[in-house]
Amino acid sequence: TGSPVPASTATLVRVLKNSNTLGIAIEGGANTRQPLPRIVTIQKGGSAHNCGQLRVGQVILEVNGISLRGREHKDAARIIAEAFKTKEKDHIDFVVFEPG
């Protein structure tokens, strides 16, 4: 599945839906300078901020087991939005990678 990601810097982060917004801004997607979505903002009071484990600069590899590799920005954003909207789970599992 593309270039191997060093396992040591890939992390599974579970974000509980304890606020009515996820509260992250993402940049990137296939065919852009940033090939995988990267977190560029975390809003105070959002579920991501409350979780405390997501950080600006982290790259999102997977959402609830769905790989974002090779997906355009809009597709990746839709997958994350739907993962937050769905009532089936009270959390979202992100696999993130800390570059550098």
Partner: peptide, 15 residues
Amino acid sequence: REKRLTLPPSEITLL
């Protein structure tokens, strides 16, 4: 590196 420079910047989406 050159290829990356010619790619367009990405949009930003708030979720």
